[in-house]
Nucleic acid binder design. Structure first.
Lengths: 343, 343
DNA sequence: TGATGCGTTTGGAACGATCAAGGAGGGTCG
DNA sequence: CGACCCTCCTTGATCGTTCCAAACGCATCA
């Protein structure tokens, strides 16, 4: 019926076409695709052959309409900050695409308004264009999570609900304090005693978390921290300034930084002062960005297990969208320290 | 009719719900959304109010089914090469998301099998999950373009059809030779005479293109090139080795590189030999990656206008998908040189 | 023989939107 | 006055799939 002669030859075959060729009903073809167990094996092979012969794939729109699901996961993709070393989100996206594909989902990117973090979500939600969201950027009191929860939108957050311990949504995060603890311990083991911290301003939950790993390790090893910490903006210039001041006033032999961007600021200072990085002064960054991997002599950095994060995120999504929905709460993963030339 | 009591309260409103509330027919609501000009203004406002009151957004699946279009653009998203400085694709994706969103399209990511560049396309195409593709990675005789063309799949390539001048598909690319010409001229203007080239192996069309910008500029300025060129793999280690050999054997005072990754290799060599980068030896990279932006003292690099590329890609897509389809051929854009501390 | 059951297959009715015609209603013209 | 057009809006069919309930063939059992 749909193979009307004169129809555009490139129009893809439909369920009805396959059914006709195989000599069965539409529903049987549908079952062959979705519930092969329901068919007698000889019927199944016959239908399979017809499917292969025509090169049939179920029409996504029709299936989505009927099943009320799109097999799409929405991800807000904001422009990367130029001038920073942070391509972390991108690395995560790559992992997410891989993992969710294995689970039968594709990733839909939509742009984010920098001023309004909730923009874009609403329309995709109401038009049922996506089944769920993955929310990144949950830092610093970002209203995304709370907003999504209030809309009863299915979503998984990459990042803890810092400001709301009662939040009921599933999340996956990396233990930043454990990361800086690894870094600090490593430096202490190398013999450093005056180890400085360069992080973000106090309002940043993530920044304070990472800072706490440094400070608690220093304390537990009986080393001083006073005068050795600095809180600045996320930029190379800030890291450069801060490290200059710290060198002048506190004389540290090593720096632990909240990000690779800040660590690169330290590298600038060292290079300007002709200090041998790694020999005279050690530096550790955070994120294991591409910069850390290629800058001479290689920046030691805390690496987040983004592949695992993606796996856990997808696992949580599957729970969320399953029938019946499976409960799942927060997952906290441990980072590792990648040692390179800077210490 | 669809507001059956007992239905899940979170089920989104439909066209019929809006129609009932506004006291008009479904089609009128549809027109209010898609062809507002067809309605009398008082009817339009009445419908608009009903839409706002219910928070209605057209169901994507239903619309897609009927209109045979998904408003989605497929993009194969392969894992980034670790250890290289090349986050260029990611920067492009960001621009593409922005631009295509403005044109009413969203970006769908799907994973790519590294061994089979055409994997993934077929299913999305046959299931009409996407309206068109954007093909990147068209380097080095990649069969993607030819394959897509043979399937009559609508797509726009980021990258010229190097090995097939007769290719009929639209493409957008950046003039690599013009970029290296900018770099080489800049170095010559600074007084450099022995300027080396580090690029990729001869089979790489892109590599040869970029190399030609260097060589033709050298020749036109009456400067020697023999013994000053090297072709290696895309890796920091390769760039490091090649620059070491070149320094020993040809004594260049400047390097032009086919990528930031290779340029970082040069930086490694200079740092090992205690040569002052920028003062003793100049370096220019290609891609203006985040690495170039943050490495001390800042890597001068050729920057591809990826925002413009995205704009042109979307423009071509709109032509391709328009009624009637508009012809469009190749677009070649000019890069710019971002001068930083390395020269 | 006819009722019961099970495994398999079938036809009709959604899902929610747009397309293609087909009406009201009012104004203009011969 | 009726034919005609124009504007605005409505009705029924349709896109391709899955859900639902019913029907089928066949064997078993009373």
């Amino acid at each position: 019926m749909s193979r009307i002669p004169g129809r555009v030859p490139t129009a893809p075959p439909t369920l009805a076409d396959v059914a006709e060729l195989a000599g069965v009903s539409r529903q049987t073809v549908s079952n062959a695709v979705n519930n092969p167990d329901l068919l007698r094996s000889d019927t199944l092979t016959r239908v399979q052959e017809a499917i292969d012969e025509l090169g049939y794939s179920p029409n996504r729109a029709a299936r989505n309409l009927r099943t009320r699901s799109s097999q799409l996961i929405g991800l807000r993709f904001t422009p990367a900050q130029e001038g920073t070393a942070n391509a972390m989100v991108d690395r995560f996206v790559h992992s997410l695409v891989e993992t969710s594909s294995a689970a039968g989902y594709h990733v839909l990117l939509f742009p984010g308004d920098l001023d309004d973090p909730t923009a874009g979500y609403d329309d995709l939600l109401r038009s049922t264009a996506v089944d769920a969201f993955v929310a990144t950027d949950t830092y610093l009191g970002n209203p995304q999570a709370a907003w999504l929860e209030s809309r009863r939108a299915p979503f998984v957050a990459f990042g803890r609900p810092w400001d709301n311990p009662d939040a009921a949504h599933p999340w996956v995060d990396v233990d930043g304090a454990a990361g800086t603890e690894l870094a600090t311990s490593h430096l202490i083991d190398l013999g450093h005693e005056r180890i400085a911290w360069i992080g973000w301003r106090k309002e940043s939950f993530i920044g304070e978390d990472r800072r706490s790993g440094w400070s608690r390790t220093m304390r537990s090893r009986g080393l001083p921290t006073s005068g050795l910490a600095s809180r600045v903006e996320e930029s190379v210039a800030s890291g450069r300034e801060a490290s200059g001041v710290l060198l002048d006033e506190a004389g540290p032999t090593a720096f632990v930084c909240a990000s690779d961007t800040l660590a690169m600021g330290v590298m600038h200072t060292l290079s300007e002062r002709n200090l041998a990085v790694g020999r005279d002064v050690a530096v550790v960054g955070f994120d294991d960005s591409q910069v850390a991997q290629v800058v001479p002599p290689g920046l030691t950095s805390v690496r987040q297990p983004l592949e695992e994060v993606a796996v856990e995120v997808v696992r949580a999504l599957e729970g969320l969208l399953g029938h019946p929905p499976a409960e799942s709460r927060g997952v906290l993963l441990a980072p590792e320290l990648i040692v390179r030339g800077t210490c």
